[in-house]
Amino acid sequence: MKRLNLLLALALVFSMSMVNLSCGGGPKKVVDETTPFDTTSAIPEDVATEEEPEAPPEIIQESQFATVYFDFDKSNLRADSKSGLDSNYDLLMQFPDVMVKIEGHCDERGTVEYNLSLGEKRATSCMDYLVGLGIDASRISTISYGKEKPVDAGHSEAAWDKNRRCEFKIISQ
């Protein structure tokens, strides 16, 4: 019974938003903005933006950049790393004044010195990929923190997976 109600409500919201989109002819901006998000959460957001149409955002948040993950002792890009970098490429194209620093990080295994070099190599692979796609190399710099700044202080495989990463930091925009 409960489930049926929920389904009904969802259907209602969905049809309403469709109506809104088609009649209001919402600015193209809105559609653009939804693409990075998954579609299920996009629906209520559309409703919200529709109520108060916003000017196109001029500032991007650091959190909009995807974090890129790596395999143990590797600096080559996995398929999921490349898709993360592709979305970061879109952001960099969309905001041509933004300068970023790519931070390379490693998990706690291995020595400080080796991991410094590995983190550097990871950051460089991200940079090379983006430059290969056509981003001006002068907009990107790299830094390695090796294993010095884990996001997860644990000692499990799960923690290590999260720590082998490249983060994008905005230097200026």
Partner: peptide, 9 residues
């Protein structure tokens, strides 16, 4: 020491 000034370590 190690430098990465020429592209890699």
């Amino acid at each position: 020491c190690v430098l990465s000034k020429d592209g890699n370590s």
